[in-house]
Design a binder for these strands. Structure first.
Length: 417
RNA sequence: GGGGGAAUGUCCCGAGCGGCAAAGGGGGCGGACUGUAAAUCCGCUGCGUAAGCUUCGCAGGUUCGAGUCCUGCUUCCCCCA
């Protein structure tokens, strides 16, 4: 393991953020010499970012912590084209309205991690649509197209894979690489940005940007990628019961977010603590040593810290209390996920299977019935194997709610209104 | 322009003599074991309370009956020019 002189690279290195770097020594020297500006980009493909983006966000966080300036690049322009990198089919094109509304949703998370403003190390947010949409077609081709050869572009794994799989890649998608490279160059010209950070899948795209910047601006430029994250058992990171681990509270509640980290595999705890929290390394070293059931303590600390970073201290605390009550004390907390249903429905009595579907636990009555049959559906902690059983006002507990659980981890409170 | 091949259960891969709600696997979900972990084992995985209904790129046709045969169309791949 190389040792760096700059705090920035040292921290990234020791916390496991670095996969590849174009010229780590020179970058280290620059980071030592003064404030550097670095960026990472986010395309507006969904209305919220998810856990997979977190690594990049955390790098920006440490960048600023160690006295440098982060740029958050919103891909308003690049999203119009769509990144083909390591995908085997083209994604449907988004409309301008969708892109705009997705960007609006994404923006908010960054304020939890970064301080924005006009100071020397304050973060700034820019949108690549501002410059990409300004170029005329021929102008773009003449300015930048001359610096890329098809021969070289075809050798990048991201493209090569698609071709080897005999999947078509449109000319539109093929241009994405250029646009991303132009972004880097633009940020270098405007803000003196010298570093682009991204996931390991972005290596090819990043290298292109580095080279274009060096060539056109005659300035040093660097690229740094993070390792591809999988869980210890090999699964892709960021899936939870029912979907992606979104960072926006309206897409995934802080309670569910907390649960995601709490349920991490033993073997991942140390890695996650380093990447997704700001807990000091010596403390992490101590937590990693916990064996057997004791490691559950470390998981709670992980969940607390990770939730705090995204949703704030109060939300993290509430999530922890709620989970602790529900799983350790067997007590219901009003902060558990709650769904309101019409009192009249309960008066008339509603079939359990239909109820489960209505509150989002299952997708169809049939699925709910099968789930019940397998013993996976409980009402007020009593397993009910017959999905046809009727649920009525009589099932309300002393708190005036019905506790419906799917499996061991999913609990929904039904509240009549 | 000519010739050949491919599209399967709304997550993926993938079998399928004209009787098929459709083999198998991955993934997912549930159960057991545990520690809200992993590994392992077991069950479920189109909709419907049910009768039944709707699925195999799209549209027609043959047939008692079609994912399976015929015609046209769409998309993709390969070869020749």
């Amino acid at each position: 393991m190389t040792t760096f002189k700059s705090d920035f690279l040292n921290i990234l290195q020791s916390r496991g953020f670095i996969h590849q770097c174009t010229d780590a020594e020179a970058l280290d020297a620059q980071a030592c010499a003064g404030t550097i500006t670095a960026y990472s980009g986010y395309d507006a493909t969904a209305s919220s970012l998810h856990a997979g983006h977190l690594v990049q966000i955390m790098m920006l966080y440490w960048l600023q912590k160690t006295g440098h300036r982060p740029i958050v690049l919103m891909g308003g322009g690049t999203t119009k084209v769509g990144d083909p990198t390591f995908k085997d089919t083209q994604r449907p094109l988004l409309t301008d309205e969708q892109i705009q509304s997705n960007m609006d949703g994404i923006k908010s998370v960054f304020t939890n991690f970064l301080t924005f403003g006009n100071g020397p190390t304050d973060a700034i947010m820019v949108n690549n649509n501002d410059w990409l949409s300004e170029f005329g077609y021929i102008e773009f081709l003449r300015n930048f197209g001359t610096h890329f050869t098809i021969n070289r572009m075809l050798t990048f794994d991201s493209v090569k894979l698609r071709l080897e799989r005999e999947q078509p890649m449109t000319f539109l998608e093929f241009n994405y690489m250029l646009m991303q490279a132009v972004d880097f160059r633009e940020l270098n010209s405007k803000y003196g940005c010298v570093l682009q950070m991204g996931g390991s899948d972005q290596w090819g795209n990043i290298v292109n940007g580095v080279e274009l910047t060096r060539r056109l601006n005659q300035k040093p430029a660097f690229g740094l990628t993070t390792p591809l994250l999988t869980t210890a058992s090999g699964a892709k990171m960021g899936k939870t019961l029912g979907g992606a681990v979104w960072l926006n509270a309206d897409a995934l509640s802080p309670y569910d977010y907390w649960q995601y980290w709490r349920n991490a595999e033993d073997a991942d705890v140390g890695k996650f603590l380093k990447l997704f929290t700001d807990i000091p390394l010596d403390e992490i070293a101590r937590l990693e040593k916990l064996q057997g059931a004791e490691i559950n303590e470390a998981k709670k600390i992980l969940a607390d810290a990770a939730t705090r970073m995204v949703h704030g201290e109060a939300a993290a605390q509430t999530a922890r209390d709620t989970a602790q009550k529900a799983f350790e004390q067997g007590v219901l907390s009003a902060d558990l996920p709650t769904v309101e249903i019409a009192r009249s429905d309960l008066e008339a009595s509603i079939m359990l299977a239909a109820l489960a579907t209505q509150i989002g636990l299952t997708q169809s009555n049939g699925e709910a019935r099968r789930l019940a049959q397998g013993g996976g559906l409980r009402v007020n902690d009593a397993a009910i194997t017959d999905g046809n059983q009727n649920i009525t006002l009589n099932d309300l507990n002393s708190d005036g709610v019905i506790k419906v659980s799917q499996g061991k981890k999913k609990i929904v409170l039904v509240r009549p209104v």
